[in-house]
């Protein structure tokens, strides 16, 4: 009971501090991509957030106001619930489920619903287009991640994340299943609406699902995206980088370090790559990434036999 409470405290600390670090990383990465000095840009996302708290939250004509306001709340809740199955050490986990990977998968797929809700409830054309565009791209991205996660669970012979971590004592999954982490990072970009997978809130739709959102409501949506990035990074660190395993430092410290590494990778990838038009991305997902994920699953299955 005490350890569960300690794990819950760690979970919220990781979410808050991780989101703060992610905001700083976003500022630096955006500046570097523009060829500007990164140091001066570190705090820019925090300053923008402070401005949003000063700005009026405008409304549209007949929005679904309740769902519009709740969408970022649901997003944060999904990040927290998804993170709850991640172990901070062998006996420090908020929710030690035998089916932890299934719970994370449920959170992933509900992100599609939340982002759709955010766009749909604005009652405006660009927000709506961003919403169903995200559903079209988000669903196959989730399917890819399901194959990848099942492949990672095979050597552990368990869907519990503590077992998945313990199965990596000899060799981390990032080396055992080299296709896994790169494919899972695709999901990270999609779950957090970033760069090459930002189909919900892109430039060509004037901000997409966020096109009509301003003020504190927009700040809440950005914070929700960052908390989901933290939850995703911790999950990737757990499934592919041995989670809390490591010498000298305590388990939570190792998990935090590995989470920071994945987070930096996702932030950098968000700035580094071009976004395909949606129909081309759909072809890439169904015809390239999905077969690759399936191949990874078959190889993992044969190894497990």
């Amino acid at each position: 009971m005490t350890s569960a409470l300690a794990a819950i405290a760690l979970l919220f600390a990781l979410l808050v501090l991780g989101a703060l670090a992610a905001a700083l990383a976003d500022g630096a990465a955006a500046a570097l991509a523009r060829g500007r000095p990164a140091g001066a840009a570190l705090a820019v996302p925090l300053r923008r957030a402070a401005f949003l708290l000063h700005q009026q939250a405008v409304t549209t004509e007949r929005p679904d106001r309740l769902n519009w306001l709740l969408a970022p709340v649901f997003y944060v809740v999904l990040a927290a619930v998804g993170l709850s199955v991640v172990p901070f050490s062998a006996d420090l986990v908020a929710l030690d489920l035998e089916t932890g990977i299934v719970l994370w998968g449920a959170c992933e797929s509900l992100v599609v619903v939340v982002v759709f809700l955010h766009g749909w409830s604005a009652n405006a054309p660009f927000a709506m287009i961003g919403a169903y565009r995200y559903v079209a791209i988000g669903l196959p991205a989730m399917l890819v991640s399901m194959f990848v996660l099942i492949a990672a669970a095979l050597p552990a012979e368990s869907l519990a994340l503590t077992a998945v971590v313990e199965s990596q004592r000899g060799l981390w999954n990032v080396l055992r299943q080299p296709l896994g982490l790169p494919l899972f990072l695709v999901l990270g970009l999609s779950l957090t609406l970033r760069g090459p997978f930002d189909y919900a809130d892109p430039y060509d739709l004037a901000g997409g699902t966020s096109a009509e959102v301003s003020g504190p409501q927009r700040a809440a949506w950005q914070v929700a995206r960052l908390t989901m990035l933290v939850a995703f990074s911790a999950m990737a660190a757990t499934v592919f980088l041995g989670g809390y395993l490591g010498p000298v430092l305590p388990g939570p410290a190792w998990l935090a370090l590995k989470t920071a590494l994945v987070l930096a990778l996702v932030v950098a990838a968000g700035q580094a790559f071009a976004r395909l038009p949606p129909s081309r991305m759909l072809s890439a997902l169904w015809l390239v990434l999905m077969p690759l994920a399936f191949l990874g699953l078959v190889i993992a299955g044969v190894e497990a036999l």
């Binding site: 060829g35 760069g195 430039y203 060509d204 976004r275």
Partner: peptide, 16 residues
Amino acid sequence: MLLPLGLPGLAERMLR
């Protein structure tokens, strides 16, 4: 052309 491709950083380098 780079803005709809989600590359504002590279677009800014070109404009500069």
